[in-house]
């Protein structure tokens, strides 16, 4: 029996005619950062989104195989998808704060999960913003529209918003691809800090980023999981020729 917090078993995904994931089996341990790398269209983002069932909203999608969270199949019929997504939070490629205040953005998750107590909400908002390393920058403008923040601040706000629902695992889908280098560095630091409490899965096309922050790395190509292991092994001593070619920049 696999002891990892979250793992997939022979996961296949079809978008209509397209076979986007071809039998992916891998694990995502708690309190580590796992990076998914590979060229555009290789299936890394698709794989990430199967973990909290965000592909469900895409029409014509068909998924077989298993995703298990604490030993429970995420795709079982009796799964409560909102509860699943509460446990597996997600940060998207481009910052997508809601068109409401900073406070209301962070409080959104707790509120939909039934928390109404004003003091408790205040506390969660502050904790989450602190955990996302943005509290100092926004504490005086919690009531201001979130869309007035800079791109980097918006992304950290989105991380705070995801943390506020107390997830166990945080998925990050190329979270820095729309950001400048300084904001990127802040998000990377944050990811390393956050792994003390959360399991983190990050999709990135930036190999240096994967090398800097991840403990495990998985390399995807054309829907296949080519190689998967400790980051130091993947980058210094890849077993597969295709992995080596990609990492040394020969394609992709």
């Amino acid at each position: 029996m696999n002891q990892a917090k979250l793992y997939t078993k022979d996961l296949h995904l079809h978008y209509g005619e397209i076979h986007a994931l071809k039998g992916v089996s891998m694990e995502f341990p708690a309190r580590f950062v796992t990076a998914l790398i590979g060229p555009s269209g290789c299936g890394k983002s698709t794989c990430l989104k199967t973990l909290n069932r965000m592909n469900d909203t895409v029409p014509g999608v068909k998924i077989t195989g298993k995703v298990l969270l604490d030993g429970e199949d995420v795709y079982a019929k009796n799964v409560d998808v909102p509860t699943l997504r509460k446990k597996i939070g997600m940060v998207f490629q481009s910052p997508n704060p809601f068109p409401m205040s900073v406070y209301d953005n962070v409080a959104y998750g707790p509120r939909v999960h039934g928390l109404k107590n004003r003091l408790a909400l205040d506390e969660i908002v502050e904790e989450s913003l602190k955990a996302a390393a943005i509290w100092e920058e926004v504490k005086d403008r919690l009531k201001k529209p979130a869309l007035r923040l800079s791109g980097g601040q918006q992304q950290r706000l989105c991380i705070a918003r995801a943390l506020a629902t107390k997830p166990e695992i945080l998925l990050m889908d190329e979270p820095t691809s729309a950001l400048d280098p300084i904001s990127t560095a802040k998000i990377e630091e944050l990811a390393v800090e956050l792994k003390k409490e959360y399991g983190i899965v990050i999709v990135t096309h930036n190999m240096q980023q994967a090398a800097r922050i991840s403990d495990y790395t998985a390399f995807f190509l054309l829907g296949n999981l080519v190689e998967h292991g400790p980051t130091s092994d993947i980058f210094s001593n890849p077993k597969e020729k295709r992995t080596e070619d990609y990492i040394s920049g020969r394609f992709g």
Binding site: N52, T57, L84, K86, S94, V112, A162, T165
Partner: peptide, 18 residues
């Protein structure tokens, strides 16, 4: 309404109606 708002809301564990 941009789809990304709805994605974010769903990813936070909202139900469709929420």
């Amino acid at each position: 309404v941009p789809k990304q708002y709805e994605d974010a809301a769903l990813a936070l564990g909202s139900t469709r109606l929420q």
